[in-house]
Amino acid sequence: MTEKKIRVLIAKPGLDGHDRGAKVVARALRDAGMEVIYVGLKQTPEQIVETAIQEDVDVIGLSCLSGAHTYLFPKVMELLKKNNVEDILVTCGGIIPDDDVKTLNEAGIKGIFGPGCSTEDIVEFIKQNVKR
């Protein structure tokens, strides 16, 4: 019996063009045996949630380095709730000051991965926390 692969959507909400980290994470998750859907840049929260539902993903990884995370990430969470798909695990990365971590946690975002973190930690976090 083969185990179902974890499906992950990696997206960059908003206008931020810094996609180096998102791409590295996408590849690391793929190399760790997950199915990765990388939708790239300039995604609105609405588009991200719509894709997540259509693709039936287990995890959403959001990346933002512009500072717009405090608006965009909670917006994604709000839309997930509205669409009754709160069981999707949401993780994020970028330039997230400590002061914002609490806000994002309260919005329901579990794993917050800043500069210098290892992709192995991200893989491990997803494996431990994914609900399926």
């Binding site: 206008l15 609105t44 500072g67 965009l72």
Partner: peptide, 17 residues
Amino acid sequence: FPTLYGFDTDHPMAKGE
């Protein structure tokens, strides 16, 4: 970012940026 993409500050895509 909104300026880099040619959006005014009150454009919907500029929200949060």
